[in-house]
Structure formats: C-alpha cells, structure tokens
Write a protein that binds this DNA or RNA. Structure first.
Lengths: 214, 214
DNA sequence: ATTATCTATAGATCTATAGATAATGC
DNA sequence: ATTATCTATAGATCTATAGATAATGC
C-alpha cells in the first residue's frame, strides 16, 4: 500500500518502462518498413511482448506510432544538440544540423523513412526536430546572423526542404548526398538572410563524424 | 466480334469510364477525409457502385488511391496551365501558380488535404503538379529570369514549401493565407535567383479569381 | 496483495470471388 | 454473344478482452 519512498523508479516501474520501450522500438522498425497497417500482433511479436501487454500501454496502433515517431525525432534532435553544444555561432549550429540531417538520410535509412512516412506531421513545430530548428533560427536572428521576419514562415521552407531532400535522395540513390545536401543548405541559409559568400563558406566547414558519439 | 470502327468510345466504354470516374471521385473524398483505411465497401457505396465492380477496375485500395491522387494533381495542374496560358513571362507564370496553390489550401480544403495526405509522393517529379513546376522553372532559366544550377534541387525546396505551407495554413486557421503565401512565394523566387525587388513586385500582381473558370 | 504480463479466443470486420443479372453489340 | 455490373457470402484476418500466470512489494 505504501508508495515507494525514493524518487528512483521501482523494479516494477522499470519493467513496465522496458516493455513500453520495446513496443516503441518495434513500432519504429515497422513504420520504417512502411507497414503502417501491420497487425498489432506483428508489432508485439517483433517487440517480444505478449499481445495483451500492448493494451496496457496504448489504446490503438495509431497512438503507438505517434509515440514512436516522437521518440525518434526527440532522440535525434538531442543528438544534434550535443554535436552543436560547443558552437558559439547559432547560424553555424543551424547549418551543421541541417547538413547532418541530409547525411542521415543515407546513413540511417530507417530514421529517414520514419521522417517522411510521417513527414508532414513533422512540419508542425511541436516535434523535437522542428522545435530545435525554430529555436536555432530565433537565436541566430537575435545574434544578428539571420534576417527573418516570420519564423513560422521560414520554418515552412526549412521543414519542406528537409523532407523533400530526403525524398529526392531516396529516389535518386546515385546522387551525391553530401554535395546535394550542402547545396540545399546554402540555399536555405541565403533564404534566411545570410549573404551568399558566407552561406557558402559555412556549408564547407568540416562536420563532426556521424560515427563519433557526440 | 468486329471492333467498333469509329474512334469514339462505345456506349459500353463510356459506361465503364463513368464507373471508374465515380470510384476515383469517391476515393478523393475518402482520402480528403483522411480515411485511408476505409473499407472498399464504403468507397463503392460512396461511388454508388456495386462492390464487385471495384475489382473490375483496380486490384487494391492502394492502387485506387494512387489513381485518385494523380487525377487530382493532374486536374489542378491543368487548371493552373490555363490560367497562365496568356502570360509571356515564365517567371510570372511560376509565381502565379505558386500563389494560387497557397490560396487553394483555404479555398478547397479537400484538395489541400489530398495534397498533404500523400504529400511526399508529390515531391517526386512524376506527378502533374510538380512536373509543371519543373517545366516552368526550366523555361524561366532559359528566358534568363531564374538562375538555377540544378532544377531537381530547386524543386526540393519548392515542393517542400508548397506542402509545408499547406500544413501551416491548416494548423493556424487564423493566419492570413494570402499574405503568408505571397511572402513564401517571394522567398522562393529569390531562392530561384530573382532580385529581391522584382520578386516582391511579381508577388503583388493581381491574380485571376479562383471563381472564374480559367 | 497488487500489478504487469501472458495466452487463447469470441466476435467483429473485411477482402475477394462466385454466380446472377443487366446492358450493349451485331 | 459478350461484357460490365450487381448481390450475397465464404473464408481470412484482426481487435480487444477475459482469465490465467508470473513478478514485485511489503
């Protein structure tokens, strides 16, 4: 009857969290495979979890998928933040995250697939990736690096470019993804009010390796 | 046994075409309503067509949906073409179509919904709308109005902007859609290499009314 | 004693087709 | 005679839950 007196989660809570995480991870694979109609049983089997457990955590497949996509975006937004933590210039941080996102389309096709399966949900500013991009833009405006009259409208083009670039790289596997991404990044920076030469230079700076833990 | 000797479709062919068109129209409503899992029976009932007829025309719901989306995009691409038929400047034609697309998100929510339900499929250049946009860009480059090193990469940003703008207008119904659309259009024109002042001017020109048949 | 998980399944739902009917062609 | 459509349904599939089992808390 008495509650756990410590703040740390109990063994039972940890077990519950593990089941939930397994479901989310399995759902990410399923979404990445484009199997949006996969039976719940298939997902729970992939998660190595009993069918009944699903309903302990989610009411519907749709709800699970949303949680799975949010988790993926949050996780990767976080990764970008760590990579740019040491950068003073918010414009540089923005450009670096944009360029890394383009490279991830090739490097991690599963995440890429999740992105554009639920693509336009991402265009809303209430997900981990778009929220961080908005934040970087606002910071760069404050620092006098960008000139943007309306952040939401700028995000329209930024998010659109991220999504459609992913689509293009997917459709044209022979295309050089680094060059293409940097080209689009440069275009986007100019659109955000940065002079062309500076945009070009900032998109040629070395990037952290995707292999290194940030 | 003998084939119909005239080129005009026979009564039978016309009947078949009517059934197909009814299915496509019903599918567009269903897609617009976001009911991507709607049972086939529901679609055939909306089309006022027997369940069995569905299989005379399509193998699966997915196939019907694709045909429905293609039809919607082709139909509207065509509408834009007629509107800009009398314009000499391809840059003006491009800008006008872009601005009208933004207005259509408000004016015809069903089409808008179709667009971003199948949004990223649209980013591929093999649909009626994107194909026309590419064509206009190429023409404007030839006419010396745009400066675009890579049409496909430019289309990445254009298509992304169209989609995500639709999303934004949907999420923020209080936002003025004409002003927002024209602002994004201007940004896109600058990105396509047009000087800022000219881009601004071209986005202030009067538009044909959506009510007039083009 | 309580909570989370598991297994097994009733009942709902849907797809795809068989066979009947109606329209067209000649 | 041929082709398209319709109605009705067998069989496949899936969801959501009931009831049993296992793990944790005290």
């Amino acid at each position: 009857m008495a509650q756990n007196r410590t703040d740390s989660p109990s063994r039972q809570e940890r077990r519950k969290a593990r089941t939930r995480a397994a479901l989310i991870k399995a759902a990410q694979s399923v979404v990445a495979a484009g199997r949006l109609n996969a039976p719940i049983l298939e997902i729970t089997q992939a998660a190595d979890v009993g069918m009944g457990s699903f309903y302990n955590h989610f009411d519907s497949r749709e709800q699970l998928f949303r949680a799975a996509v949010d988790d993926a975006l949050e996780r990767h937004g976080n990764r970008f933040d760590e990579w740019s933590a040491c950068l003073d210039d918010p414009a540089h941080a923005f450009a670096q995250s944009f360029r890394l996102t383009g490279r991830i389309h090739r490097r991690e096709p599963a995440l890429s697939q999740v992105l554009f399966t639920f693509g336009l949900a991402m265009a809303a500013v209430d997900n981990g990736l778009a929220r961080r991009a908005s934040r970087d833009i606002d910071r760069a405006v404050l620092a006098g690096r960008f000139v943007v009259p309306d952040t939401d409208l700028a995000m329209v083009v930024v998010a659109g470019a991220v999504l459609c670039l992913g689509r293009l790289l997917h459709d044209q596997p022979e295309r050089d993804h680094a060059t293409s991404t940097d080209h689009v990044a440069q275009t986007v920076l100019r659109m955000l009010g940065m002079p062309g030469e500076e945009a070009s230079e900032i998109c040629q700076r070395p990037l952290p390796s995707l292999d290194d833990p940030p």
